[in-house]
Design a protein around this nucleic acid. Structure first.
Lengths: 198, 198
DNA sequence: CCTACCGATCGGTAGG
DNA sequence: CCTACCGATCGGTAGG
């Protein structure tokens, strides 16, 4: 029971930290800022967490695990490449929408991870990106996508669009995350231009 | 002559600062780091610049002016909306490619500007975005673009794609900035999917 | 561009 | 979770 309460308090600390890191950036956020948000003294934070960086690590790697899980589910589906891409985009956006604050930190602050952690993080990320790249290549081979596209440029454009979403998306607005995923996928696959036959 | 040399030294300081800010982020970059990169003492920096933030300001607002200039040139052209969009994208990417380091700082560190400067910066940015939005709306009205697209989503996706470019683009690679602008514009306008008639 | 230095703030620890 | 505190580092100034 005490262990459960400690855990829950730790999660509170991490959540408040995520908000702070998102707002001011990791480096510009002090442990005293964080303590104040929680109504305690800075030194008291260390009963719940080991260090400032531990918080960042837990935010970054938890998000990475969520993204990975979502993609694995999509890869198991037996559908066309363009449908897989569509589902992958919707899944990615769904994961972000579940915690926009952590997503923003994941995206913008991961570079403040130290040495080996940063390395592990980047390996996870490149793996994730490459799996999306494989889906696009699959679609090129199957004739669904143009054969003259630059796959690297495509996948980078895709992730740019996806990852910037926490910066402008208003979760209280009328458009929900599935809708965004749908439209974004349509935009990247079909483009802005009107088609001949519709 | 001495004034000229001071100016040039100031530009050196700003350039080195841009590299540092890009690498470690503004908040995590110390004036002592910067001084070391220049081979001088930290206190000596202040003969060339007034404060750390002055450097950030000059980087952010100089880039903003370049973007604005590029867009104004495009707006003067008497061409279709889709062509205007294409030229706008190529122009934006061209400005970034001229100084990828400053572009990255512009994108990722502007939030560390203080009060009124941040406000001015955000006003410039919203104005720039709205002018691109107007081009897309023009294309929707003229029938070039689909009428059911969400303009806000489109323009945000556009800028996401554009602004992340400094993070992955390798200027020493075989693909040049005009080529990237061309392909990116094609991707956003026409999509990944193969068209019927080609 | 340097030496010498300032007050403020940083992440974190000891001990309760 | 607190008080009391640490050494390190921060942006910046005075005076040359």
């Amino acid at each position: 029971m005490e262990a459960v309460m400690n855990l829950s308090r730790k999660e509170q600390v991490i959540r408040k930290a995520a908000e702070l890191f998102r707002e001011k950036g990791y480096a510009a956020s002090s442990m005293r800022d964080l303590a104040q948000k929680l109504g305690i003294e800075a030194a008291s934070l260390y009963s719940h967490i080991k260090s400032k960086e531990e918080i960042l690590r837990s935010l970054c790697f938890d998000m990475a695990a969520e993204f990975r899980k979502s993609l694995e589910e999509v890869e198991r589906q037996n559908v066309s490449a363009s449908e897989k891409l569509r589902l992958g985009i919707i899944g990615h956006i769904g994961v972000m929408a579940k915690d926009l604050t952590a997503s923003a930190v994941f995206m913008n602050e991961h570079r403040h991870l130290s040495g080996p952690y940063l390395r592990d993080f980047l390996l996870l990320r490149i793996n994730y990106i490459n799996r999306f790249k494989a889906i696009i290549e699959e679609g090129t081979k199957s004739g669904e996508f143009k054969e003259n596209i630059d796959t690297k440029l495509s996948v980078m454009t895709l992730f740019s669009s996806l990852n910037w979403m926490p910066q402008w998306y208003n979760p209280d607005g009328k458009i929900d995350s599935i809708n965004i995923g749908q439209q974004l996928s349509d935009m990247l696959v079909n483009g802005l231009k009107k088609q001949n036959a519709q």
